[in-house]
Protein backbone atom coordinates (compact mmCIF):
# COMPACT_ATOMS: atom_id res chain seq x y z
CA UNK A 1 0.00 0.00 0.00
CA UNK A 2 1.33 3.41 -0.92
CA UNK A 3 1.91 6.04 1.73
CA UNK A 4 -0.83 8.64 2.18
CA UNK A 5 0.05 12.00 0.65
CA UNK A 6 0.55 15.15 2.76
CA UNK A 7 -2.84 16.77 2.20
CA UNK A 8 -4.44 18.68 5.08
CA UNK A 9 -7.41 16.29 5.03
CA UNK A 10 -5.19 13.23 5.38
CA UNK A 11 -3.12 14.76 8.17
CA UNK A 12 -6.13 15.83 10.21
CA UNK A 13 -7.84 12.53 9.64
CA UNK A 14 -4.89 10.31 10.61
CA UNK A 15 -4.06 12.33 13.74
CA UNK A 16 -7.71 12.37 14.82
CA UNK A 17 -8.18 8.64 14.33
CA UNK A 18 -4.98 7.79 16.19
CA UNK A 19 -5.70 10.05 19.16
CA UNK A 20 -9.29 8.77 19.42
CA UNK A 21 -8.18 5.13 19.33
CA UNK A 22 -5.40 5.72 21.88
CA UNK A 23 -7.80 7.73 24.06
CA UNK A 24 -10.33 4.90 24.03
CA UNK A 25 -7.64 2.37 24.92
CA UNK A 26 -6.48 4.52 27.85
CA UNK A 27 -10.03 4.97 29.07
CA UNK A 28 -10.55 1.21 29.04
CA UNK A 29 -7.27 0.43 30.85
CA UNK A 30 -7.91 3.19 33.38
CA UNK A 31 -11.38 1.81 34.17
CA UNK A 32 -10.08 -1.73 34.78
CA UNK A 33 -7.09 -0.60 36.88
CA UNK A 34 -8.86 2.06 38.98
CA UNK A 35 -10.06 -0.46 41.56
CA UNK A 36 -6.75 -2.35 42.03
CA UNK A 37 -4.90 0.99 42.33
CA UNK A 38 -7.25 2.22 45.07
CA UNK A 39 -7.00 -1.20 46.72
CA UNK A 40 -3.19 -1.07 46.68
CA UNK A 41 -3.18 2.41 48.25
CA UNK A 42 -5.66 1.30 50.95
CA UNK A 43 -3.61 -1.84 51.68
CA UNK A 44 -0.47 0.23 52.06
CA UNK A 45 -2.22 2.57 54.48
CA UNK A 46 -3.72 -0.16 56.66
CA UNK A 47 -0.40 -2.06 56.64
CA UNK A 48 1.31 1.11 57.88
CA UNK A 49 -1.29 1.60 60.62
CA UNK A 50 -0.99 -2.05 61.68
CA UNK A 51 2.78 -1.57 61.87
CA UNK A 52 2.63 1.52 64.11
CA UNK A 53 -0.22 0.42 66.40
CA UNK A 54 0.38 -3.30 67.03
CA UNK A 55 -2.27 -5.83 68.04
CA UNK A 56 -4.67 -8.33 66.47
CA UNK A 57 -8.28 -7.54 65.57
CA UNK A 58 -7.83 -3.78 65.77
CA UNK A 59 -10.58 -1.65 64.28
CA UNK A 60 -9.35 1.41 62.46
CA UNK A 61 -11.58 4.45 62.27
CA UNK A 62 -12.09 6.65 59.23
CA UNK A 63 -9.34 9.26 58.97
CA UNK A 64 -9.86 12.64 60.56
CA UNK A 65 -8.07 15.30 58.55
CA UNK A 66 -6.54 18.17 60.50
CA UNK A 67 -3.97 20.87 59.91
CA UNK A 68 -0.75 20.84 61.90
CA UNK A 69 1.00 23.81 63.47
CA UNK A 70 3.08 24.39 60.34
CA UNK A 71 0.08 24.33 58.04
CA UNK A 72 0.51 20.83 56.62
CA UNK A 73 -2.42 18.43 56.41
CA UNK A 74 -2.29 15.41 58.72
CA UNK A 75 -4.61 12.44 59.13
CA UNK A 76 -5.54 10.87 62.47
CA UNK A 77 -6.79 7.28 62.67
CA UNK A 78 -8.22 6.06 65.96
CA UNK A 79 -7.51 2.39 66.66
CA UNK A 80 -9.94 0.53 68.94
CA UNK A 81 -9.93 -3.13 69.98
CA UNK A 82 -13.24 -4.57 71.23
CA UNK A 83 -14.44 -1.10 72.26
CA UNK A 84 -11.20 -0.32 74.07
CA UNK A 85 -8.93 2.52 73.01
CA UNK A 86 -5.59 1.16 71.81
CA UNK A 87 -3.94 4.17 70.29
CA UNK A 88 -3.92 6.60 67.45
CA UNK A 89 -2.03 6.56 64.20
CA UNK A 90 -1.09 9.94 62.79
CA UNK A 91 0.08 10.45 59.24
CA UNK A 92 2.25 13.58 59.14
CA UNK A 93 4.26 15.43 56.53
CA UNK A 94 7.47 17.42 56.83
CA UNK A 95 8.72 19.54 53.97
CA UNK A 96 12.17 19.97 55.55
CA UNK A 97 13.69 16.79 54.15
CA UNK A 98 16.96 16.92 52.26
CA UNK A 99 15.16 16.66 48.92
CA UNK A 100 11.73 17.97 49.91
CA UNK A 101 8.77 16.16 51.38
CA UNK A 102 8.76 13.14 53.68
CA UNK A 103 5.62 11.34 54.88
CA UNK A 104 5.65 9.32 58.09
CA UNK A 105 2.95 7.44 60.00
CA UNK A 106 3.34 7.52 63.81
CA UNK A 107 1.47 5.46 66.41
CA UNK A 108 0.80 6.85 69.91
CA UNK A 109 -0.77 5.13 72.92
CA UNK A 110 -3.15 6.85 75.37
CA UNK A 111 -0.25 8.42 77.30
CA UNK A 112 1.35 9.82 74.16
CA UNK A 113 4.21 7.33 74.09
CA UNK A 114 5.40 6.41 70.61
CA UNK A 115 4.26 2.88 69.77
CA UNK A 116 5.91 2.74 66.39
CA UNK A 117 6.44 4.51 63.11
CA UNK A 118 6.45 3.69 59.44
CA UNK A 119 7.98 5.88 56.75
CA UNK A 120 5.53 6.11 53.83
CA UNK A 121 7.65 8.29 51.58
CA UNK A 122 11.32 9.22 51.86
CA UNK A 123 12.04 8.89 48.14
CA UNK A 124 13.60 12.37 48.03
CA UNK A 125 16.26 11.52 50.59
CA UNK A 126 19.76 10.41 49.60
CA UNK A 127 20.05 6.62 49.24
CA UNK A 128 22.39 5.16 51.88
CA UNK A 129 22.15 8.29 54.05
CA UNK A 130 18.79 9.95 54.72
CA UNK A 131 16.96 7.01 53.18
CA UNK A 132 18.05 4.92 56.20
CA UNK A 133 15.16 6.66 57.99
CA UNK A 134 12.80 3.64 57.96
CA UNK A 135 15.22 1.63 60.16
CA UNK A 136 17.34 4.14 62.06
CA UNK A 137 14.75 5.28 64.62
CA UNK A 138 13.26 1.80 65.28
CA UNK A 139 13.55 -0.06 68.56
CA UNK A 140 17.10 -1.15 69.37
CA UNK A 141 18.62 0.97 66.61
CA UNK A 142 20.94 3.92 67.21
CA UNK A 143 18.27 6.62 66.98
CA UNK A 144 15.61 4.65 68.89
CA UNK A 145 12.51 6.80 69.57
CA UNK A 146 10.07 3.95 70.28
CA UNK A 147 8.48 4.17 73.74
CA UNK A 148 9.55 7.76 74.21
CA UNK A 149 7.04 10.54 74.75
CA UNK A 150 7.42 13.77 72.77
CA UNK A 151 5.62 15.59 75.61
CA UNK A 152 8.27 14.55 78.16
CA UNK A 153 11.40 13.71 76.21
CA UNK A 154 13.28 16.29 74.19
CA UNK A 155 13.08 14.57 70.84
CA UNK A 156 15.43 16.64 68.71
CA UNK A 157 18.81 15.63 67.33
CA UNK A 158 21.73 15.73 69.77
CA UNK A 159 23.30 18.53 67.74
CA UNK A 160 20.29 20.70 68.64
CA UNK A 161 20.50 19.70 72.31
CA UNK A 162 18.03 16.83 72.10
CA UNK A 163 18.38 13.19 73.00
CA UNK A 164 18.09 11.50 69.59
CA UNK A 165 21.17 10.41 67.67
CA UNK A 166 20.86 11.72 64.11
CA UNK A 167 21.47 9.43 61.14
CA UNK A 168 25.21 9.52 60.37
CA UNK A 169 25.89 12.27 57.80
CA UNK A 170 22.15 12.98 57.42
CA UNK A 171 21.28 15.53 60.11
CA UNK A 172 18.84 17.35 57.82
CA UNK A 173 16.85 14.19 57.10
CA UNK A 174 16.86 13.36 60.82
CA UNK A 175 15.59 16.83 61.68
CA UNK A 176 12.83 16.45 59.09
CA UNK A 177 11.84 13.10 60.61
CA UNK A 178 11.68 14.59 64.11
CA UNK A 179 9.82 17.60 62.70
CA UNK A 180 7.18 15.23 61.27
CA UNK A 181 7.09 13.54 64.70
CA UNK A 182 6.55 16.87 66.45
CA UNK A 183 3.78 17.79 64.00
CA UNK A 184 2.13 14.40 64.49
CA UNK A 185 2.33 14.71 68.27
CA UNK A 186 0.97 18.25 68.07
CA UNK A 187 -2.22 17.16 66.33
CA UNK A 188 -2.42 13.99 68.44
CA UNK A 189 -2.36 15.85 71.75
CA UNK A 190 -4.89 18.35 70.37
CA UNK A 191 -7.44 15.64 69.54
CA UNK A 192 -10.15 14.62 71.99
CA UNK A 193 -9.46 10.98 73.04
CA UNK A 194 -6.05 11.99 74.32
CA UNK A 195 -7.31 13.95 77.33
CA UNK A 196 -5.42 11.83 79.82
CA UNK A 197 -2.25 12.36 77.85
CA UNK A 198 -2.65 16.12 77.62
CA UNK A 199 -3.29 16.28 81.38
CA UNK A 200 -0.01 14.49 81.97
CA UNK A 201 1.68 16.86 79.60
CA UNK A 202 0.43 19.82 81.59
CA UNK A 203 1.87 18.25 84.72
CA UNK A 204 5.15 17.69 82.93
CA UNK A 205 5.12 21.26 81.72
CA UNK A 206 4.34 22.51 85.20
CA UNK A 207 7.23 20.59 86.71
CA UNK A 208 9.45 21.87 83.90
CA UNK A 209 8.42 25.42 84.79
CA UNK A 210 9.28 24.78 88.42
CA UNK A 211 12.77 23.66 87.51
CA UNK A 212 13.10 26.75 85.37
CA UNK A 213 12.13 28.90 88.27
CA UNK A 214 14.57 27.05 90.48
CA UNK A 215 17.25 27.67 87.88
CA UNK A 216 16.52 31.37 87.63
CA UNK A 217 16.51 31.50 91.43
CA UNK A 218 19.91 29.90 91.51
CA UNK A 219 21.08 32.37 88.90
CA UNK A 220 19.79 35.25 90.98
CA UNK A 221 21.64 33.92 93.98
CA UNK A 222 24.77 33.72 91.90
CA UNK A 223 24.47 37.25 90.56
CA UNK A 224 23.77 38.55 94.02
Amino acid sequence: MAKLENSTKNMVLSLTVITVVVGALLGYVSSITAEPIAQAAANKQSAAIAAVVPGDGNEISEPETVTTANGEPAEIFTVMNGGKFVGKAVKAVSKNGFGGKIVVMFGFDAEGNILGYSVLDCSNETPGLGAKMPDWFQKGQKGDVIGKNPGKNNLTVSKDGGEVDAITAATISSRAFLDALAQAYGVYSGSDVATSASKQNKEAEASANETCEADSCAQKCLTE
Binding site: A2, K3, S7, S14, L15, I18, L26, T33
Partner: peptide, 29 residues
Protein backbone atom coordinates in the same frame (compact mmCIF):
# COMPACT_ATOMS: atom_id res chain seq x y z
CA UNK B 1 1.45 3.66 5.58
CA UNK B 2 -1.65 5.37 6.99
CA UNK B 3 0.33 8.31 8.36
CA UNK B 4 1.33 11.21 6.10
CA UNK B 5 5.04 12.06 6.46
CA UNK B 6 4.52 15.56 7.80
CA UNK B 7 2.69 14.38 10.91
CA UNK B 8 4.54 11.13 11.57
CA UNK B 9 6.36 12.34 14.73
CA UNK B 10 3.18 13.50 16.56
CA UNK B 11 1.44 10.27 15.56
CA UNK B 12 4.31 8.11 16.84
CA UNK B 13 4.47 10.06 20.10
CA UNK B 14 0.73 9.62 20.69
CA UNK B 15 1.06 5.86 20.17
CA UNK B 16 4.14 5.66 22.44
CA UNK B 17 2.60 7.85 25.16
CA UNK B 18 -0.52 5.69 25.05
CA UNK B 19 1.44 2.50 25.68
CA UNK B 20 3.57 4.14 28.40
CA UNK B 21 0.43 5.23 30.25
CA UNK B 22 -1.02 1.73 29.94
CA UNK B 23 2.19 0.24 31.37
CA UNK B 24 2.23 2.84 34.15
CA UNK B 25 -1.38 2.12 35.15
CA UNK B 26 -0.74 -1.64 35.14
CA UNK B 27 2.38 -1.23 37.30
CA UNK B 28 0.52 1.03 39.74
CA UNK B 29 -2.32 -1.48 39.99
Amino acid sequence: NLIPDKVHIPCYIVVIAGFVTVVQLLIKA
